[in-house]
């Protein structure tokens, strides 16, 4: 990763926040973005890098994104979910670059007056993010297996990658 200053990669509007970042994700700060005296329920989803895929050990994951488009898609999902479930607020952040095993790659926080809407909204927001947001995942298995670009939507094992690790991080 080049040591250039990180560009601003977020969109903020009233009670809605979406972000892409190369930094570690911070749970208290994303929770704070949705808390409100009006909201009796906050649901937080934290997606964490697992140590295996199909029984193969994963050393780390790396994410790249088409950042301007991914942010726009996240904003569209957040608006839609917020409206549909009458949320008080919603915040979603996705990590880019290398994400070591055990660290979070995505956080979604939603708040609403009552818990049922919050549970459902959190679930829908996550599903739509995974389905639509223009972020790609590279799994580093270590050893001869190397790195694999994962196109999981197809349920396929993905393609071996050679010499593309320098590209991870996507458009900056």
């Amino acid at each position: 990763m080049a040591a250039e200053p990180s560009p601003v990669m977020c969109i903020e509007e009233e009670n809605l926040f979406v972000q892409l970042t190369h930094d570690r994700l911070d749970i208290p700060s994303i929770m704070a973005r949705v808390k409100s005296p009006k909201a009796g329920a906050v649901v937080l989803f934290a997606g964490t890098t697992r140590d295996s895929f199909a029984d193969k050990p994963v050393v780390h994951l790396a994410y790249s994104a088409y950042a301007p488009l991914a942010l726009r898609t996240m904003q569209s999902i957040a608006r839609d979910v917020k409206g549909k479930h009458s949320l008080t607020a919603i915040a979603m952040v996705h990590r880019l670059g290398v994400c070591p095993v055990g660290e979070e790659s995505i956080l979604i926080a939603v708040s609403s007056p009552h818990r049922l809407a919050a549970w459902r909204a959190g679930e829908q927001a996550l599903e739509e993010c995974k389905e639509r947001v223009e972020v790609w995942k590279l799994e580093e298995f270590g050893g001869s297996e190397g790195a694999v670009w994962r196109a999981n939507r197809d349920g396929q094992a993905g393609a071996r990658v050679e010499d593309t690790m320098g590209d991870v991080g996507g458009q900056r």
Partner: peptide
């Protein structure tokens, strides 16, 4: 213009 491969993160999928 951008080529957009399938995104990485299907949550559950049929295989």
């Amino acid at each position: 213009v951008a080529i957009i491969p399938p995104v990485s993160s299907g949550y559950e999928h049929l295989y």
